[in-house]
Amino acid sequence: MTWVTDWVRSSPGTHIWLLVIGITSLVIASASEGLGQFLVHRTSSNIHELNEHPLPSLLISGFWIERPSSFLLYVALFELVHANVERWLGSGRWLLTVGGAHIAATLASQELVLLAIEGHRLPRSMTHVVDIGVSYGLAAAAGVLTYRLWPPWRYGYLSGVLIFFAVPLLTGASFTDFGHAIALVMGFAAWPLTPAAAAGGRTDHDEEAAGPAEEPAGPVEGPAKPPPDPGPDPKSRQER
């Protein structure tokens, strides 16, 4: 089981996040229906909570999921997406990417809800809508993961990701679909944070394919040695 330990250590942020989600999911699953509803509303980053508790609601909402029964699905997605991105970018740049996308997508999507309420397209009760979950961070990680894959797999993966997020956006989009699109774009925009960008666009596969730098053929000559000193020319000596 050494490889499991090494995998967890290589992506600590992903697995700490999963652990917290597992705990909060157990809390909701064991709570009464009324308490469960109170918790998901109290920890939502909706308009009401953002006005009352802006920073806590932005942070806490990313550690809860509405349906504890979907926890195993999130485990699989975290291991496939988040863990690989964190190992590649490093924990700091991974957190900057997914955390920034979660915050930006939450604020943008709730601003959309507010505009719809003010335009009488949504009821005022939407200020208390449930808005919790980890999907915005997953969308951003899925976006930046595109740069980790090698062609031609990259293009197939990119097409699948775009279709997955674009179809709901183009067919009766909700505020969460809009937030997913924002987060995905932020993941694509995180290219400068990737090791591939630092390497001038070369992927790890490119480095391996290129192999080590070639050394010049033949022996390497050192600096030329001066010829031995023959001593003074006998003819140049003065006789007495």
Rank of each mutant, 00 (worst) to 15 (best):
L169V: 13
I182M: 04
L184H: 05
A173T: 10
A183S: 06
T171V: 12
F175G: 00
G187M: 12
F178P: 01
A183H: 02
G172V: 09
S159G: 02
L170Y: 13
I182E: 01
A183L: 06
D177Y: 06
L162V: 14
A173E: 09
A183M: 06
T171S: 12
V161F: 11
F178C: 01
F175W: 10
G179A: 02
G187H: 09
S159A: 15
F175T: 02
L170R: 04
H180V: 02
M186R: 07
D177F: 04
D177P: 05
F164S: 11
F188A: 04
G187S: 12
H180C: 00
F188P: 02
G160C: 07
S159M: 04
A166L: 14
H180T: 01
A189Y: 13
A189I: 12
P168W: 03
D177W: 03
I182C: 02
L184R: 06
V161G: 01
I182V: 15
F188M: 13
L184P: 05
V161R: 03
M186D: 11
V167L: 15
G179K: 01
S174Y: 07
F175A: 03
G160S: 12
G187A: 08
L162Y: 06
A166P: 01
A181E: 03
G160H: 01
L169K: 03
S159P: 00
F164T: 13
L184M: 09
F178M: 02
V167E: 11
G187F: 14
G172L: 06
S174Q: 13
A166T: 11
T176A: 12
V167M: 14
V161S: 07
V161K: 03
F164D: 07
A183W: 03
P168Y: 03
G179R: 02
P168E: 05
S159N: 00
A181D: 00
A173S: 14
F188G: 02
F164I: 07
V161A: 12
G179C: 02
S159Y: 00
L169G: 07
D177K: 01
F178L: 03
F178W: 05
H180L: 05
F178E: 00
F178T: 02
D177G: 01
F165R: 04
I163R: 03
F175I: 00
I163N: 07
V167I: 15
A173C: 14
S159W: 00
A189P: 08
A181V: 11
A189K: 12
P168H: 06
A166S: 15
G187K: 09
L162M: 15
A181F: 10
S159V: 14
V161T: 08
I163F: 14
F165H: 04
